[in-house]
C-alpha cells in the first residue's frame, strides 16, 4: 500500500503542518511502510464475521443530569500564557472576508 506524496501534502495541510518537499517525500515513504505493515490486517479471514463498529464492547455509559462543581476560574486559567479579565487571550483569529 502506498501513500503518494500529494496525499501526504493534503494531510499535512488539513493538520496545519508545514512540510518541505524533502519531508513530504520522506513521510510518503515512511507512512507507506506503516500502512503496508498495518495493512496485513486486511488479509485476515473475516468471512461470516460481523463488522466491528466500535472498539469497546460497552454500550450506554451514561451520567445523570447533575451539576458538579466546576474549576475555580484561577485554576482554569492557570496555564494560559495570556489572559484578560477572566478570558483566555489568543492571537487574532483571521476573519475571512
Amino acid at each position: 500500500m502506498k501513500l503518494e506524496k500529494e496525499e501526504v501534502k493534503r494531510l499535512a495541510e488539513l493538520a496545519r503542518f508545514e512540510l518541505s518537499e524533502e519531508e513530504a517525500a520522506e513521510f510518503s515513504h515512511q507512512l507507506s511502510e506503516v500502512l503496508a505493515y498495518t495493512g496485513q490486517v486486511r488479509e485476515a479471514p473475516v468471512e461470516g464475521e460481523k463488522p466491528a463498529i466500535h472498539l469497546l464492547s460497552l454500550t450506554n455509559v451514561l451520567r445523570d443530569d447533575e451539576v458538579k462543581p466546576s474549576l475555580p476560574r484561577e485554576e482554569a486559567l492557570a496555564n494560559a500564557p495570556h489572559r484578560e479579565e477572566g478570558f483566555f487571550r489568543v492571537p487574532k483569529i483571521l476573519e475571512e472576508s
Binding site: 451520567r63 447533575e66 451539576v67 466546576s70
Partner: peptide, 23 residues
C-alpha cells in the same frame, strides 16, 4: 439540561466568563 453533555459543569447562559469549566 442542567449539566453539560459530557461533564458535570452547569449548562447556564450569561455567567461570568470561564466560571463553568472543568478539565
Amino acid at each position: 439540561t442542567e449539566a453539560k453533555v459530557f461533564c458535570g459543569c452547569a449548562a447556564r447562559f450569561g455567567a461570568e466568563p470561564n466560571t463553568h469549566v472543568c478539565p
